[in-house]
Design a protein around this nucleic acid. Structure first.
Length: 667
RNA sequence: GCCAGCGUAGCUUCAAUCGGCAGAGCACCGCAUUCGUAAUGCGGGGGUUGUGGGUUCGACUCCCACCGCUGGCUCCA
């Protein structure tokens, strides 16, 4: 006998084999009709799933109102899409078609490539399939039979997947809908009719099993919702993201530019962007000073031998700019990392334990030859400046230093209105030869990271295989105001570069014998380019007052007030504000409009009335509102208070569902 | 690097019918206007249609190569 526990605490007993559908029918016909899937002891299953005949299970029937059913429905929609493509095309071989955060995709190998022009036709065919409202039927087969079925269907990727990826599965499942039969773990919704609204989003290349050395397939991305209005609002959020694109805003607001003649992926900071960067650097520098870091400067090139010693050259030569050849035995690299240089500063003389922790900081510019297809605006570039520092400390100091790095990162992010983030601990993958150093050091380093995170009560997730080659790391993955994730700051523990085989770092301990220090690599912002790119999108170009390239614009009502306007402008300038003025022979409305669109936080409107009173009329951009006339001094006090608090007055808040594309790998 | 798409004036605002005279808006410059909280009017300049080659009587339009960009894949010390 089976006991089924329901969410309301009640229990139902069944003497014979049942499915969630039967359970739902027992509860009521309404629920049975609305049931799309079920949650069985925490896992999502289809409503036709055969529950065990004995024992006790927790079961929750899932309907449209449960978020879990959205993923199930989207996976079904991926099948509908694949079915439509197979109706329209010949020689379609199916690969994987999972659900992702914002929708789903399916990978195909096709005789003729699909382009976006084909979307309307595919969508039309999908609509037809959905109208038929045919059920998704689950079929279970033995391995041999499954291979045979896939062979007959000429689905060679599926054959391979059964034989390799699913080698330890005794039985396999298929889902059938009309003429469409696909190897698939499921679950699926009962029938296609529940797919309320869908849209094909994009088409892209993707390698079979994510392996660059294997065949490239076409990946068709789509999304689906139960209700048309949810699809609409999803598309609106994508549109919102598009409007905030830092590449567009960066050009419009004259923050940065990229010139093909200078080179792809190389950022030219325009004056206004340079203001923002300079302010952020000052902000970080003052924190570094407070926290006992010492600034250093190092050159932009270094001999190849330096990077051979560090191990970067053997590991990353493909993504480094080629060496600069001088003589046969004299080659220089553009530096891809600052750490080897900082290490040489440490090594410039013998070190005592009394000096540790030694914290060396530099806004170090590095160059990496990223693949051309990787480049994107400021977020993925070939030259960038890290807010870098390397801490050399004793084993005993590691935890405190690591804690200090986390603290500084949290402080900096918070000051910029980036309060939504998670921490990802990147650990080594077992049995990989990608890493340097003995396993014991790795264990120790990984253990320290976990202990510090636990002691701070900080949530984190461990990801295997995400470590740097020399040590494990803690990455800060920041969610911006429309729900997209960005990897920004990082703290990395390193027991390897100091080792005998690498740079053989030492300090003399209190026992008067040499000891090996531990290194911590850390960059709270990551790179200035990427960080500011993300900030542009986060703020939609409307920077808080303390960072705004132009903080105040003086607007004259007419040319009659120009002289007074210039006085006000000069006053603001001398009080430390970044100020501009609009003396054009335009109407006030036009000047206001331009300043609003250029995202200037405050406008000081000056006319004859103000001149007579020695006042300014303050207009606030955020509220798009006239705050009224006030004395210049009180207006300045007001702004100064806002600057000194580093007040972040507004960021859009919402969720585009554009988060990292984590897949749950249905097949 | 790979797959797909795109490239017309400073502008990710865009037009140019089937291959038949490259044209608007915004921005910019000039003149007039002297204005009180999101666009004053008039006039003007600005183009080797990404680059190079090909097909054609004729190419923004069709074909090839290259460059750049976009969306993905792979990569990310």
């Amino acid at each position: 006998m089976l006991t089924v526990r329901l969410p309301d605490g009640s229990e139902k007993n069944f003497a014979h084999s049942v499915t969630p559908r039967h359970v739902a029918e027992e509860i009521g016909p309404r629920l049975a009709k609305a049931a799309l899937a079920a949650e069985l002891d925490g896992a999502t299953v289809g409503i036709d799933f055969a529950l065990p005949e004995e024992g006790s299970v927790a079961l929750r029937i899932l309907t449209k109102s449960d978020p879990e059913s959205l993923a199930v429905m989207r996976h079904s929609c991926a099948h509908v899409m694949a079915r439509a493509v197979m109706r329209l095309r010949t020689g379609v071989r199916l690969a994987f078609g999972p659900t992702i955060d914002a929708g789903f995709y399916y990978d195909f190998d096709l005789d003729e490539p699909i382009s976006e022009d084909d979307f309307p036709q595919i969508e039309e065919e999908m609509r037809r399939i959905i109208e038929l409202d045919e059920p998704f039927e689950r079929i279970e087969e033995t391995r041999e039979k499954s291979v045979q079925i896939c062979r007959e269907l000429e689905q060679t990727f599926k054959v391979e997947h059964i034989q390799e990826g699913l080698a330890n599965h005794e039985t396999l499942s298929f889902y059938q809908q009309g003429e469409f039969l696909d190897l698939c773990r499921g679950p699926h919704v009962p029938s296609a009719g529940v797919i309320g609204a869908f849209k094909l989003v994009s088409v892209a290349g993707a390698y079979w099993k994510g392996d660059q050395s294997r065949q490239q397939l076409q990946r068709l991305y789509g999304t689906a919702f139960f209700r048309q209005q949810d699809l609409k609002s999803h598309l609106e959020t994508i549109e919102e993201a598009r409007k905030r694109d830092h590449r567009v805003l960066g050009k419009r607001l004259e923050l940065f530019s990229i010139s093909p003649l200078v080179g792809s992926g190389l950022i030219l900071w325009q004056p206004k962007g340079a203001v923002i960067r300079g302010l952020l650097e000052e902000f970080v520098k003052s924190e570094l000073q407070r926290r006992g870091y010492q600034p250093v400067y190092t050159p932009n090139v270094g001999r190849v031998e330096l990077y051979e010693k560090s191990g970067h050259y053997p590991y990353y030569s493909d993504s480094m700019f080629a060496p600069i050849m001088m003589e046969q035995d004299e080659q220089y690299m553009l530096k891809p990392m600052n750490c080897p240089h900082h290490i040489m500063i440490y090594k410039a003389r013998p070190r005592s334990y009394r000096e540790l922790p030694l914290r060396l900081a530099e806004f170090g510019t590095v160059y990496r030859y990223e693949q051309s297809g990787e480049l994107s605006g400021m977020t993925r570039v070939r030259g960038f400046t890290q807010d870098d520092a390397h801490i050399f400390c004793t084993e005993d100091q590691v935890a405190d230093e690591f804690r200090g790095c986390i603290d500084m990162t949290q402080f900096v992010l918070k000051s910029l209105g980036l309060e939504n983030y998670r921490v990802r601990l990147g650990f080594r993958a077992p049995d990989s030869d990608k890493y340097v150093g003995p396993e014991a050091s790795w264990e120790r380093a990984q253990q320290s990271l976990v202990e510090v995170c636990d002691s701070l009560g900080m949530a984190y997730e461990v990801e295997l295989g995400e470590a740097a080659f020399y040590g494990p790391k803690a990455d800060f993955v920041v969610t911006d105001c429309i729900g997209r994730e960005w990897q920004l700051g990082t703290v990395q523990l390193d027991y390897n570069l100091p080792s005998k085989d690498r740079f053989d770092l030492e300090y003399i301990g209190s026992d008067n014998t040499p000891h090996r220090p531990v290194m911590i690599h850390r960059a709270p912002l990551g790179s200035m380019e990427r960080f500011i790119g993300v900030l542009i999108e986060h703020f939609g170009g409307a920077f808080p007052l303390w960072l705004a390239p132009e903080q105040v614009r003086v607007l004259t009502v007419s040319e009659k007030s120009e002289e007074y306007g210039r006085e006000v402008e000069e006053q603001l300038q001398s009080r430390g504000f970044r100020v501009a003025a609009d003396y054009r022979a335009e109407k006030l409305g036009a000047k206001i409009r331009d300043a609003q669109l250029e995202l200037v936080p405050y406008m000081f409107v000056v006319g004859e009335r103000d001149r007579e009173a020695g006042a300014v009329s303050v207009r606030d951009r955020v509220e798009s509102r006239n705050l009224g006339a006030m004395s210049l001094d009180s207006a300045i006090d007001r702004l100064q208070a806002e600057v000194s608090q580093r007040l972040v007055r507004r960021t859009f808040s919402g969720d585009a569902g554009l988060g990292e594309r984590g897949t749950s790998n249905e097949y």
